[in-house]
Write a protein that binds this DNA or RNA. Structure first.
Lengths: 196, 196
DNA sequence: CGTCTATTTGAATGTACTCAAAAGCGGTGG
DNA sequence: CCACCGCTTTTGAGTACATTCAAATAGACG
């Protein structure tokens, strides 16, 4: 049941059998139906979350009511409203399921205890965060320096697996463009490839 | 000499006297003249860096030759090319000084040893990274959901201290707009406030 | 003082948006 | 099984925002 998450953790740190046992003892499996929320903006976010199956999205609803997607997460990825988790304040974002999904949750309190009882996990999450940080840096650069069609191209290159699974509308909301614009960009790409 | 960095560290973790001594022993002060590089894209980045005085910027030069600024950092902030530091590959970004600056450097090797010898520092950098991560999330959302004038307004709200110190051109490069556009946005803001 | 860079301003252009409508697609219930 | 509903995607026309290019002005630094 928890093979995937243990494997994920072991990519960056080694645990003793005891530590493994303790870690497993705080994990709570959870299923999420398509469209079901894991977290909602304004409410406290009570857990760190690891995905064993399915696909989640983290998004923000702006003043015009448009959804802006911060991140997608599939199997073998972590996702949470970090702001809420570290400050205890209400979440800034919504997290919901784009597909029926299976998760492993760690309650906020258990998570904090874990970091104290097994400090190696500090290292684990530092490494996870470093990677997330670098990929966010990349995304910021792409957002401020590239036009929509080029951003879409980079998205496809970087996340070929996601392209298959996500509705265009969701990809548009991730790229920061309208669904109509993405549709036009795709048409132009097809016209471009036909002629070659 | 190292009061500021010790104070910065003590915001999140407590060190014993021994640990403090060891930590100080690996710190290297460095002065950087205005326009001088701390890191250059393509070259390995050899250190984590804490700023005690002055102002640095981290930027990327895109295919058109435009500079796109990822981050500014002033006194009491950390800055490095994280990608280069964790992978050992060449840096993705350039880092240089916008003002004559005074830094404290930790060599990559010493940094890695520090994390092993004083694991509490894993916690420290995890917390630093969490905050940076959240602020990057915010910036991504603002970049994809707001227009230039609103992004500028948010920048002023969030970084009132920086406004004074930075040339407009640098702020424009941070916001992802041209210097001309920022100039027009500022004029409109002034016209707007006059009338009220 | 002179030089170099930053900032302002104008005109023309281009990219992406809004609004509107039609077509496509999937699921549900009669 | 078909008809209908809701949602996504496509397409068009007009518009808004920001860019490019060019030139003038202002400011900073040696």
């Amino acid at each position: 049941m928890f093979e995937l998450i243990l494997q994920n953790v072991s990519k960056h740190i080694q645990l003793t059998d005891e530590e493994k046992e303790y870690f497993i003892s705080i994990l709570k499996p959870k299923k999420l139906r398509r469209r079901q929320y894991l977290a909602q903006a304004g409410e406290p976010c009570r857990h760190e979350c690891f995905i064993t199956k399915g696909c989640l999205r983290q998004y923000y609803v702006d003043d015009n009511g448009s959804e802006r997607i911060l991140a997608f997460a599939i199997e073998d990825y972590w996702m949470s409203d970090m702001h809420a988790l570290i400050t205890g304040e209400g979440a800034l974002t919504n997290i919901d399921a784009l597909e029926d999904s299976e998760l492993v949750l760690i309650e906020k309190k258990a998570f904090e205890e874990l970091l104290i009882k097994v400090p190696r996990f500090e290292r684990f999450f530092r490494i996870i965060l470093q990677r997330a940080f670098v990929s966010h840096q990349r995304r910021i650069i792409e957002n401020i320096s590239l036009q929509a069609d080029e951003r879409y191209k980079r998205f496809l290159e970087r996340h070929p697996a996601l392209e298959q699974r996500l509705p265009q509308k969701q990809i548009a909301a991730y790229l920061g463009i309208t669904a109509e614009s993405l549709s036009r960009i795709r048409r132009q790409r097809l016209e471009g490839t036909k002629k070659t």
